[in-house]
Amino acid sequence: MGTEDIRRQSMNVFRMKLLGAKVHGVTSGTATLKDAMNDALRHWVTHVRDTFYVIGTVAGPHPYPQMVRDFQSVIGREAREQMLEAVGCLPDAAVACVGGGSNAMGLFYPFVEDKAVRLIGVEASGLGIASGKHAASISAGSVGVLHGNKTYLLQDGDGQIQHAHSISAGLDYPGVGPEHAHLHDIGRAEYAAISDDEALAAFKMLTEMEGIIPALESSHAIAEVIKMAPQMNKDQIILVCLSGRGDKDMHTVAEAMGIEL
């Protein structure tokens, strides 16, 4: 895990350690997910005879994107079933945040053949696309090859990978799973971008109004729903994936609000 992410996700890291994990800090590059993936791949090739590589997102060489999609799609299958049970019809739109894109792919996949359901992935535009400090690979990147997959990447004119930025560690990756790139290219899914500030505002709104504290990642999806809902009819339905809890983000949110804990 990148040392920057260890700092930002200290609550989760503590939990991982309580569960018995040994967490190796990665200091190379930007010390975030991209660099942790580089070092995990390096460790894997060095210890390939007795080590299995696993990854939590739908990126990397085949068959990892497919494996992670299939595991994650439990959420989409259950959401689809429950929607039919509780409401009696499919939603008009399904919305999820996209970094590497695992929770979004898990939500979208069981709906891909339901053409009437809009699929909306929400990337992080960080400090704004124009600032260059963002993680919106589909919205503002270009096609390249990294970590064994061809997809949309944040890169400069020489094919060097650029630093991603997002207030949420889980979206802070300069690429996106290749199946999202495909869904975008064939026009099946749409991809929007939400800034750090918009995500923070959504975080506060959901916390105050529903008593549900969303992860900063999921707050990007909530922010998009807040934008979309007023454009829709009252009887239309939006399904949003609350992919994580915000407990882990208390330090980051407090810091952004200028509060010392």
Partner: peptide, 24 residues
Amino acid sequence: FSDPMADGPTIQLASERALAAGTT
């Protein structure tokens, strides 16, 4: 290259120095 996955620290750092010098 910015992300030399098959290289150990020696060549990773060489890549960083070369990119910092503006190599394309």
